[in-house]
Structure formats: C-alpha cells, structure tokens
Simulated assay, not measured.
Amino acid sequence: MLPLLALPMLFAPAPLPAQAGAAPYVVAESGRAFGRLQEAVDAIGDGDGTIRIATGYHRDCAVQTAGRVAFVAAEAGRAIFDGVSCEGKAALVLRGRAARVDGLVFQNMRVPDGNGAGIRLEQGNLDVANSLFRNSEEGILTANDPAATLTIDRSTFSRLGRCDRGLSCAHSVYTGEYGRVVVTHTRFEKGSGGHYLKARAREVEISDNSFDDTQGTATNYLIDLPSGSTGRITGNLLVQGRDKENYSALIAVAAESRDNPSRGLVIEGNRASIPQGIGRSSVFVADWSGEPLAIGANQIGPGLKPFEKR
C-alpha cells in the first residue's frame, strides 16, 4: 500500500510555470529574493539558511559547496525542478556541510553518463522529506562519506533507473559508502531498470516502505546491500513484478563484496510476494556475506523461498 503521507503530493493540482517576473527563491532568514537558485545558495554561503521555492516549474539547478541549506517548497508537491542539471549531474548537487530537501518534485533528469538525478549528494548529511522523484535516470545518487547520514522519509520514487547504452546501471536510489542510510514511509514503484534501493552504507534503517514492482520494466533487486550492511529492514511491503532483468531475489546482501559487516542484520515484519501464475520462483533474502543474519518472522507469499546462501 502507498504510504498515506505520500498521497497528497501525488494528487496535488498541477502547478503552472513559475510566475514570470517574480523572484521564485527567497532566503527565509533575510527575506531576500533571487531569480536564480544558485544566487540564493551563494547568498547563504557557509552559513545556515532556508530557501523557500515558489510553486511552478523551475528549469534551474544549483551547486551547494558550503554551509547548511534547506530547500523547501512554498507548497509541498508543487515546486517542480524539470529537466535541468548542474555539472552534468543533478538538479541539486550537494557538497556543503549539510542539506535538507522538503516538498520538492524532481523530474525528467537525463545526462550523458546516464546518471541524471534529482539530487547528487557528494558529502554531508542530507534529510529528504515529502518529495517526489520521477521519470529520470536516477532519483538520488551519492558519493562516499562514511561520517554522514542520508535520511529519506515520506517520499516517492517512480519510473526511475536504467541499464542500457552500454553504461553502468542507474537506480532509483544509489548510495555510496555512507555511514548510515535511513529510508522510512516511502514508496518505490514502476522502476525502469536497475535496483530500487541500492545502498553501500555500513548501517541501514529501511522501515515501513512499499516496493511495488508490479509495473516495473527490466528491474533487478528491490533492496540491494551490495557491500553488506548492519541495521534493520522491517515493516516493508515488497512485491516483485513480472518484467525483470534479474528475478533471483527481492533482497540481496553482499552480492558484490563483504566490505561491511552484515552480522546481525535484522530482517523481520516484512510482507513479500511475487505474481501468481508467473511460472517462476524467487528468493526473499539472498545472502553472500556468510555471516549470521537476524531473520525473524516475515509474511512470505507462494513461490518465494525465505532465504538462500549464495
């Protein structure tokens, strides 16, 4: 089921283009208004500030190199960043001390290397809430920052990912070697390639989300922890679809390396299923780590093997 807190955004009335002649970006602390997002970010500099973003379509982008910046929609779900990326990466390229994104929509992000994202996080903590990522190559892509945390809450990732053109795959969310990744009350759906959530973090908290692959195309794992991880995967709904590039598992642990410990990773209270009459089987949790995982009670549908060592 779609997390209820995501519903208002998906059904919000379509906004008009950002009003011509009006400055769409306001730094809340100073009241100063700017015509370009980069100007507002630069005005905050190495300080702390909140940028209120007007309702409408914004063909704009920005790079944050310092400070703590909050990017907040004036009206949740109606400030839309559409198809423009900075540095050939994303609408928001974040490498300051920390950032927060609340109520924004990112769509139609495509770049030459196939990793066009709503957000490229290169360092620092990031909190994302009440936001929608859709119709792009990637939703959120991060570099490595072992001291930092990425938190995603009450958001939706739809029609994202790709594995084509001879390029490395892109995913709905792909995190590098972050210290901690927290994903809660969020919906993943209609993937167009790659994995839905791929995280190389040492620790994860993936709780109370829905992974709905029923309308996915050429997708892979629903949750991929390719380097192993500790933490918790709890209370999620996971439904594998029919059109798969790789249908061998829903959750994969340490499929690429054992760089992180996985001992004690808790996987419990989840509901998982595959389509009836599909003529194939799959595995709920596939584990390459060789370490004891803490797999508790989960509701596993027909055709799914609960666990397999690989």
Results as ranks from 00 to 15, higher is better:
residue 284 F to C: 01
residue 226 P to L: 06
residue 190 K to I: 13
residue 214 T to P: 05
residue 176 G to A: 01
residue 96 G to C: 07
residue 259 D to F: 13
residue 226 P to D: 01
residue 222 L to E: 01
residue 203 E to G: 06
residue 122 E to Q: 13
residue 244 K to P: 00
residue 211 F to C: 00
residue 22 A to W: 08
residue 271 R to C: 03
residue 117 A to W: 02
residue 10 L to S: 09
residue 307 F to C: 01
residue 236 N to V: 03
residue 301 G to E: 04
residue 306 P to N: 00
residue 9 M to D: 13
residue 201 A to P: 03
residue 34 F to R: 03
residue 67 G to E: 07
residue 166 G to L: 01
residue 7 L to P: 12
residue 295 I to S: 03
residue 180 R to V: 11
residue 97 R to S: 14
residue 179 G to H: 08
residue 117 A to C: 06
residue 123 Q to R: 15
residue 133 F to L: 12
residue 143 A to N: 11
residue 96 G to S: 09
residue 112 P to Q: 05
residue 273 S to M: 05
residue 304 L to Q: 00
residue 295 I to T: 02
residue 185 H to F: 05
residue 274 I to V: 02
residue 174 Y to F: 08
residue 207 S to A: 06
residue 124 G to N: 09
residue 297 A to N: 07
residue 114 G to M: 05
residue 2 L to W: 13
residue 149 T to N: 05
residue 128 V to I: 11
residue 91 A to T: 13
residue 70 A to H: 12
residue 127 D to K: 09
residue 287 D to I: 02
residue 195 H to N: 09
residue 189 E to R: 14
residue 140 I to A: 06
residue 116 G to A: 03
residue 201 A to Q: 04
residue 278 I to W: 06
residue 93 V to G: 09
residue 13 P to G: 09
residue 97 R to A: 15
residue 266 V to D: 04
residue 78 R to G: 00
residue 102 D to T: 11
residue 145 D to F: 11
residue 108 N to M: 15
residue 243 D to P: 04
residue 14 A to N: 12
residue 145 D to I: 10
residue 114 G to H: 00
